[in-house]
Nucleic acid binder design. Structure first.
Lengths: 261, 261
DNA sequence: CCATGTGAATATATTCACAGCC
DNA sequence: GGCTGTGAATATATTCACATGG
């Protein structure tokens, strides 16, 4: 499906750099652009301006243009971006031209929900296998898949070409599971367990910790409360309160910006 | 220099001391330090060096020291940090000295799992109420709580002093729910729906999108594949990298750094 | 000594502002 | 005219390296 190569133009000989090396911050935003573009496509738009796409994705237009410029320009000056073309480009860069097989380990509370989450299926992934270490859970059917024992992981990973694993076990089991995944050839891990994983070089780990997200919000609640509690105290001995506006702020993942202007 | 601020102990009641204004990147890491500190405390440590805490939290020690220095110094040169004191300080800064009430909206697939997630309870939060718009779900008991209709949100939020809301609805319902939460006085929202929310200034939104996390990993998979496939193998489909990559890789994915020794 | 805390140096990210092209 | 693409300017974050003080 990938006839398109975002290669540097001209006839520079030899190697085609399959991927431009993108800033991490840009990589983290491309999926959001992709989602917004699909939404726009469904509502009949076939082109969109940087302003329009930016607001659909919750960022400002300068950032969006800079991000897209790293992919090599696919917009038209005076017009905007071709939605279908941009979708194709971003999907190519994100490696979504193939549907990637994912192994999910841990079918407890959260694992069950993840196994049933439709969003994985519609956005480039296929949950290829479910695993658990608890024999009492092995054999259970979830969403058309049978839970297997973790010992079957190596064989299954090889057969299904699984390169991405999701850990949804309790924290105490997570490191062992990570080791097993790596041993089975997995090179990317999404970790929902509240702990740090140690993995060899070349393996990528992303972590999602639900309580941490709330704790970050708690900080902002605390700060807002402390600001409103001191309306305009005249020289109370505490240093002047920085006048920071707005909700949001930035974060490595997830904090939405307040669109000021 | 180090002005000691006993959290909530002294001073006239009602007066909230101003918070140091922390870099967002630091705020996002404090919860991880807190988790690591609790773990250390449980295993009997009562002091820890920046090196030790950093490795337990998956960051490097310089970053950790810089982060902690923003809270005002609570370490002892030549010794390290007092675990209990640091826990207390971070919990104070994050606003975790009170247990915050949270409303969860949407008890479908994911909402169910979140309602049952023990980590919220053990790390500073109390799920105070569950809501759904579907009358067929109202009345259901989950984890000791009864699902209420979303229309009861305003009354309930006021009564329970709910300032934080979690949205676990389908994307099409999320904006409406957000509006309802804001109208009910909620000023921080954790959004699991794959869409951008528009909220008034002063309301903080954090977003967790499970598919986006996988897509970011997919990018790194794609990049790793293109690097290993590059040298002189043109167009050779997908190779299932069997071996760990050798040297020179750019390590981390931005969330977790290479850990291990 | 030793490990913290911190200025200085570097790296990364965002925003501005406008040239260039449709 | 309008909008993209981009260098330059600014802001934020990370890392270095060492003075400081228990």
């Amino acid at each position: 499906m990938s006839q398109h190569r975002p290669a540097g133009a001209s006839g520079s000989p030899g190697v085609v750099p399959a991927l431009p090396d993108l800033p991490e911050a840009t990589v983290a935003r491309l999926p959001e652009y992709l989602r917004a573009l699909h939404h726009l496509a469904e509502s009949g738009h076939d082109t969109v301006s940087s302003e329009g796409l930016a607001s659909a994705a919750g960022v400002n237009s300068a950032k969006l243009r800079k991000d897209l410029s790293h992919l090599g320009s696919y917009g038209t000056r005076g017009v905007g971006y071709d939605v279908a073309l941009l979708v194709e480009q971003i999907e190519y860069v994100l490696g979504l031209t193939q549907r990637r097989a994912v192994a999910l380990v841990g079918v407890g509370n959260l694992g069950h929900a993840l196994a049933g989450y439709a969003g994985f299926g519609t956005r480039g992934f296929r949950i290829a296998a479910l695993f658990d270490a608890d024999p009492g859970r092995v054999g259970e059917q979830i969403n058309g898949l049978t839970v297997r024992h973790i010992d079957e992981l190596p064989a299954c990973a090889a057969q299904e070409s699984i390169a991405i694993g999701v850990i949804a076990t309790p924290a105490r089991a997570a490191q062992t599971v990570a080791d097993q995944l790596v041993a089975a050839g997995v090179t990317s891990i999404l970790n929902f367990a509240p702990c740090v994983l140690s993995v060899p070089e070349g393996v990528d780990v992303r972590k999602v910790d639900l309580a941490i997200e709330l704790q970050i919000l708690s900080f902002h609640e605390h700060r807002k409360a402390s600001l409103t509690a001191l309306p305009d105290t005249p020289g109370a001995g505490i240093a002047a309160i920085p006048n920071r506006l707005g909700g949001g702020g930035l974060g490595s993942s997830g904090t939405q910006e307040a669109v000021g202007s």
